[in-house]
Design a protein around this nucleic acid. Structure first.
Length: 421
RNA sequence: CGGGCUGUAGCUCAGUUGGCUAGAGCGCCUGGUUUGGGACCAUGAGGCCGUGGGUUCAAGUCCCACCAGCCCGACCA
């Protein structure tokens, strides 16, 4: 894409009214627009990042045999009444509205009930199990207080996966597998190094669950973790009891304490929802049993915000390659028509190699401004073309994460850039 | 939902004990000089001073209410 066509602009000042670093950097560089507290629109650059994150998640889940679907945000209160979650005393962050005729509706904050309701139409026999289905879908949560930029929104895109098994044993096997799948997702998203599978207290219907916590000062949680052994426990749940329950010896570990961001969670739901919704199957003897369920969430904007919190410097964002809005920022410092033509050709050549490239073709902007803005956007690879480099028949390449540039041939450049694509 | 802070130009902000026609920087328009780390000169446009009420000869400034934003706390399936 040509930068002259991009309607967003990079702002010089940090927007006021945001303390969260992720929101500051993303607003400043034109990735997002704030509609109201906790509600953000995604502009072209921001949407590209969202799509990249979705792509990584989708690929891993599909590989794991999960099926993608899409459920609705509008839900009738009846199914939530079945599980008691319509009551404000049970779930206090549900947005509620109504039809013209007065029928009450809720905006889905999660989809355990709807998905169980749907599956009740298709699951009748043990032969229909197991399976798992997920979606990327907007969730609405009436948080008492929005904070942390895009990391705790009132409206946000969530990947929610639900699993369906005949019994706990079959479920547990899948649950264990998902731990690995999730870690692989976060590794691919660039968060592997400082993300910990963390033991935590569960939802009311299972004593414990696991969270994926990324170490960051911007976090709202605190975990105790053993760096070497990769064991972590949410500070809220750190007790002798948890060690006993997991069969671990507390003395085997050296725990550090750090603030962290919960970027994912996986829950064993048991039969709570299937019993309430009447999602049952017949076993080989014809006896009826409730389906054993699990749910597995990743907040997509929260992952995006976390990446920004983890990867930035005083000049702006530094996107990991897997989630960067573009792979290459091609910056032209040329003014003459002939030289501009050369850059244009390189731009097209990169595209023909299937490389996402943002081409700063603006001719009325100073070099310094282009560099400063490029740093803010944070595209991992930068290629600079100037009359000098063209005359020398060389390409100037600089990584966003490094200070110094290198000069190389087009082929060498291509090798570096296309390594991850 | 409790406590605190803040709403003035597109953005970041200044605006004195209430006092004339509302200020700066950035951004934007126009013209010119520039071009390797947010260049410079000149010119111009741009305001319901969050909303409503009140006090006053006079309100951006004081008072009340409401709305919105931020922070701390509580909350976070």
């Amino acid at each position: 894409m040509k930068q002259s066509q991009l309607f967003t602009k990079i702002k010089k000042e940090i927007p006021s009214g945001e303390v969260a670093k992720n929101a500051q950097l993303l607003l400043q560089a034109g990735f997002i627009h704030k509609e109201m507290a906790g509600v953000y629109s995604f502009l072209p650059l921001g949407l590209r990042v969202i799509e990249k994150i979705k792509h990584v998640i989708r690929k891993e889940l599909n590989n794991a045999g999960c099926q993608e679907m899409s459920m609705t945000s509008l839900q009738s209160k009846d199914i939530w009444k079945k599980t008691g979650r319509w009551s404000d005393d049970v779930v206090d962050n549900c947005f509620k509205t109504s039809l013209k005729n007065g029928t009450e509706l809720g905006l889905a904050f999660s989809h355990e009930e709807p998905v169980a309701q749907i599956m009740a139409n298709y699951v009748h026999s043990y032969k229909d199990l197991p399976f798992s289905a997920y979606q990327f879908q907007t969730k609405f949560r009436n948080e008492l207080r929005a904070k942390s930029g895009i990391m705790r929104g009132r409206e946000f895109l969530m990947k929610d996966l639900y699993s369906f098994h005949v019994d706990k044993k079959a479920h547990d096997e899948f649950y264990e597998k998902m731990k690995g799948v999730y870690m692989e997702i976060f590794r691919k998203l660039g968060l592997g190094g400082n993300t910990y599978l963390t033991m935590s207290s569960g939802v009311p219907f299972s004593k414990y669950s696991f969270e994926f916590q990324t170490i960051s000062e911007a976090g709202e949680d605190v975990i105790l973790f053993d760096k070497e052994k990769k064991v972590a426990i949410n500070k809220d749940d750190f007790s002798d009891e948890i060690f006993v329950d997991f069969g671990l010896n507390k003395d085997d570990y050296v725990f550090e304490e750090a603030k962290s961001i919960e970027i994912g969670d996986i829950y064993s739901l048991g039969t709570k929802y299937s019993e309430a919704i009447d999602l049952t199957y017949a076993d080989a003897e014809g006896k009826s049993h409730p389906v054993f369920m699990g749910s597995y969430g990743i907040g997509v904007p929260r992952v995006m915000g976390t990446v920004v919190e983890v990867y930035n410097d005083e000049d702006g964002i530094i996107w990991p390659e897997e989630v960067a809005p573009f792979a290459v920022h091609l910056i032209s410092l040329c003014k003459g028509d002939a030289e501009k033509g050369v850059v244009e050709k390189v731009y097209k050549q990169l595209i023909s190699h299937n490389i996402d490239v943002l081409y700063d073709d603006r001719s009325n902007v100073s070099a310094g401004q282009k560099f400063a803005e490029s740093d803010k956007i944070g595209i991992p690879h930068r290629v600079i073309m100037s009359p000098k480099t063209i005359a020398n028949n060389t390409f100037e390449y600089k990584k966003r994460s490094e200070k110094d540039a290198k000069y190389m041939s087009f082929d060498a450049l291509l090798r570096i850039i296309s390594k991850t694509y």
